[in-house]
Amino acid sequence: MPPCSAQCGKNAILKRPKTGDTLCKECFFEAFENEIHFTITRAKLFKPGSKVAIAASGGKDSTVLAYVMKLLNEKYDYKLDLVLLSIDEGITGYRDDSLDTVKQNRDDYGMPLKIMSYKDLYGWTMDEIVAEIGRKNNCTFCGVFRRQALDRGAALLNVDYLATGHNADDIAETVLMNILRGDLARLSRCTSIITDSGDGIPRVKPLKYTYEKEIVMYAYFRKLVYFSTECVFAPNAYRGHARVLLKDLEKIDPAVIMNIIQSGESLKINENANMPTLQKCTRCGYVSSQDVCKACE
């Protein structure tokens, strides 16, 4: 490997997909953490003294997010009160195992953990729902349930922010997907680093500019414990096209990921284009794009 770009005298162990610089392990940790700190302060993600729930699935993104948030909070004295919030969809062989990982994070990082389960909230686990309705639209239900469960959990914990582990690849993929779907409303808001889900608790994405590859490398070199199994139910077929495309693009030129986010941020919607508006479900009052949300249906 070539020498470290930071001229620390060591040899590099990785080439950063985001910039092409080569870094040794120590300098990579520094750069990785500094960048997230830069994102948090430059985009003014949190007010000092607030309470932040980290949406924790046990996967690599949320594990790294929890670890780095704790580290930066102490190092730069953000004065944040951090808690973990997990959703138990009730999927045997997937969520039960990943929740063990989250519990491990809770103990390792000394953060309180709140688990919201579909069973408690809706009276059904995903396993039961799939047994009832089959595999066809199960991901739709699960998605709607999870969104609401996170909102309810955040409200219950009385937090000021909900931080999610969305990374740069996720954002770029969503931009592509919304173009392929012709979904202007979502296209215009999917690159926002802070979004308001409608109930006053803003959702923030501190890893918005962090490459998935670097998250994996960071977790690996820091020896963080995470859960890497995909959901046992149908993987999201719809995102599939955008995901495959993005992976192919990244192989050609990894800078494409940041380019797509840049494009998404600078797109301007024509003023006379018709845009659908978000409304509230007439039954449960949570945000929905239709009169009655999919959960109530």
């Binding site: 709607v144 349930f145 969104r147 999610t164 969503t174 995102r239 945000v287």
Partner: peptide, 19 residues
């Protein structure tokens, strides 16, 4: 994490968007 449901994304919309 599974990204379905983020940003009020509803899978059934797909039929409308991509026949």
């Amino acid at each position: 994490m599974c990204s379905i449901g983020d940003d009020n994304f509803e899978e059934l919309d797909n039929l409308k968007y991509m026949p």
